[in-house]
């Protein structure tokens, strides 16, 4: 009899464990793939491979910063040396998406939730490119196809970035938590500013402008692909590729951004038709910037915990909710 109770008890524990794990872990595997998947790359291989290279470049910068930021005594030289490696990768980009855990294992360990959100969102980015390039319609048919991938994206709710837009304070107003302040006090870090936002762009302006150039490139492509004819699309994509290379030709001077590029400004036609996607993509890009700040700022002691927090904010429609939003 007691054996029966033991079995029932173990069964319950197993069920509880399954339920718990489904709330805390989500695979970012998109199955089945949409029929249009990766058609963008067949038509515009140079642009597609640059997108793959950006993932590589992000991971490389983040891993180097995570491992070495405390030891960097000459940030300008560090930037220059690493930039030359990244430019070489951009000029010889991979033809497939790289696995970030191969290039940046510490980064992947430190930001597990954020990375899952970014990976899942990048798949959505990709499939929207693929649909835009394979769908001649610029009306209801296009909206329905994009709507189908958005629905699929939202099914994996644990790793979905909200489509309610956020204020710039999400990116620029991040502060050390009470726990973080306690840790700083224990380390006898002097009193003073407790905002860690903008740490990356101030210490490594060239890396920051490189990443903003990536973001510009990605969202500008959406506007290019909104063109109604294939010829117009191709010309626009070619110009965007050319402009991107000019932007990164002499960093930091050559990338003339004061702020992170926003979808509504860089891709107004796309943002008008897909305002919720625009909001979601901007939050994706903001989260990249916050991760950069977490990596660089001496004020952030427990980078893994803080990284989890900002990822949860990216999912949360109420966190830093903006009153001025095309998608509402």
């Amino acid at each position: 009899m007691s054996n029966v109770f033991l079995r029932i008890g173990l069964g319950c524990l197993l069920l509880l464990a399954c339920g718990y794990s489904s709330n805390t872990y989500a695979e970012t595997v998109w199955y089945p793939l949409p029929p249009e998947a990766y058609q963008f790359g067949k038509k515009y291989p140079e642009a597609q491979n640059l997108l793959f290279a950006f993932d590589y470049g992000h991971a490389l910068v983040y891993e180097e910063l995570l491992l070495n930021v405390a030891k960097i005594d000459n940030p300008e030289k560090f930037e220059k040396d690493l930039l030359s490696q990244i430019i070489a990768i951009l000029k010889n980009p991979p033809a497939t998406k790289v696995d970030e855990s191969d290039i940046a294992p510490n980064y992947v360990f430190t930001f597990p939730l954020a990375l899952n959100l970014l990976d899942w969102s990048h798949l959505l980015h990709q499939f929207v490119f693929d649909i835009l390039v394979t769908t001649p319609d610029r009306g209801d048919v296009l909206k329905a196809k994009v709507g189908a991938v958005v629905s699929k994206y939202k099914e994996n709710s644990h790793v979905v970035i909200t489509d309610v837009c956020k204020t710039m304070q999400y990116m620029d107003g991040q502060r050390v938590s009470k726990d973080g302040q306690k840790a700083l006090k224990e380390l006898e870090v002097e009193e003073g500013a407790r905002s860690y936002s903008k740490a990356f762009r101030r210490k490594f302006p060239s890396f920051n402008l490189l990443i903003w150039s990536y973001h510009w490139f990605q969202i500008r492509l959406y506007e290019d692909l909104m063109k109604s004819t294939e010829k117009e699309q191709s010309e626009a994509v070619a110009l965007t590729v050319k402009t991107f290379w000019e932007m990164i030709s002499n960093l930091p001077e050559s990338a003339d951004f004061d702020m992170m590029p926003e979808t509504a400004k860089v891709a107004p036609g796309f943002a008008k038709m897909f305002p919720k996607l625009a909001a979601s993509f901007d939050t994706n890009h903001s989260m990249h910037d916050i991760i950069s700040d977490i990596l660089v700022s001496k004020l952030v002691i427990n980078k893994r915990n803080v990284g989890m927090g900002i990822a949860r904010m990216a999912r949360d429609p109420e966190a830093f909710r903006s009153k001025e939003c095309l998608s509402q």
Partner: peptide, 28 residues
């Protein structure tokens, strides 16, 4: 460099918005 970038039809901005943008430029 600015002129080299693809043109996007932008709207004129208000004095308040322009002031915010001037602060961003100053920060850069």
């Amino acid at each position: 460099l600015g002129l080299d970038q693809p043109a996007i039809a932008a709207e004129p901005v208000s004095n308040g918005k322009a002031t915010e943008l001037s602060l961003h430029r100053m920060e850069r």
